[in-house]
């Protein structure tokens, strides 16, 4: 399996064991309180380990969000496939869901008591606020990638933000219109594009 993948890929990928993928995603699943699974994946896969380049990772975020299903599990599938094909998908997804599954089972027994603890509620609101900050950090890295390749991506980025973020228009419609437009503009004109402005 891995041989065919090595042949199709133009660059040499470092060998990453399935156990390593499972372990990384296991801890992402356990630590990701307050949401923010996407930045956790970016941190562990791109920043801390260099298993993927950010320019390969960020388009995956859009893909994960546009495809049916939960963003975080879709992104884990995308990363797992990139790293080790189907086995990588199972390791990544299985790893990410193991911890939350066990914690969920444990929480089912005590959740009535948990909900009554006011300080815990306050703490969780704070955790969630910091988690939004993590997502903002991921967003900034995507903005950084977008503004370095000309004026059109900047316009598309701002238009997407205004339509979905500010105007609250339905995501599906906006994406259905903006994505083909953005892809058409980005279509490489030469095999080795050098689009310096």
């Amino acid at each position: 399996m891995s041989e065919t993948q090595a042949e199709t890929g133009s660059e040499i990928k470092p060998f990453i064991s399935l156990f390593a993928i499972y372990r990384v995603f296991f801890w992402i699943g356990v630590f990701s309180f307050g949401g923010g699974l996407v930045p956790w994946m970016q941190r562990e896969i791109v920043t801390a380990r260099g298993w993927m380049k950010n320019e390969d990772f960020v388009p995956g975020i859009a893909l994960a969000q546009v495809l049916p299903g939960v963003n975080s599990t879709n992104l884990a599938v995308f990363i797992g496939q990139h790293l080790r094909g189907l086995a990588g998908v199972i390791a990544a997804l299985g790893g990410m869901l193991t911890g939350p599954f066990i914690i969920m089972i444990a929480a089912t027994a005590v959740y009535h008591q948990i909900l009554d603890i006011k300080p815990l509620q306050i703490a969780m609101t704070g955790v969630a606020a910091a988690a939004i900050g993590m997502i903002l950090r991921t967003g900034l890295s995507a903005v950084q990638l977008s503004i370095t390749s000309g004026i059109v991506p900047i316009v598309i980025m701002l238009a997407t933000f205004v339509m979905i973020g500010v105007m609250k228009w339905p995501l599906l419609w906006v994406v259905a219109i903006m994505t083909p437009l953005s892809i058409a503009v980005a279509w490489p004109r030469k095999p080795k594009a050098s689009g310096d402005a």
């Binding site: 996407v38 320019e55 960020v58 388009p59 975020i61 859009a62 893909l63 969000q65 997502i135 903002l136 991921t138 967003g139 995507a142 903005v143 990638l145 977008s146 390749s149 991506p153 900047i154 598309i156 980025m157 701002l158 238009a159 997407t160 933000f161 979905i164 973020g165 995501l171 994406v175 903006m178 994505t179 953005s182 892809i183 058409a184 503009v185 980005a186």
Partner: peptide, 12 residues
Amino acid sequence: RGLTPIAAGLIM
């Protein structure tokens, strides 16, 4: 390339 600015807009 095309999905990168869309991702940026969606995350923000």
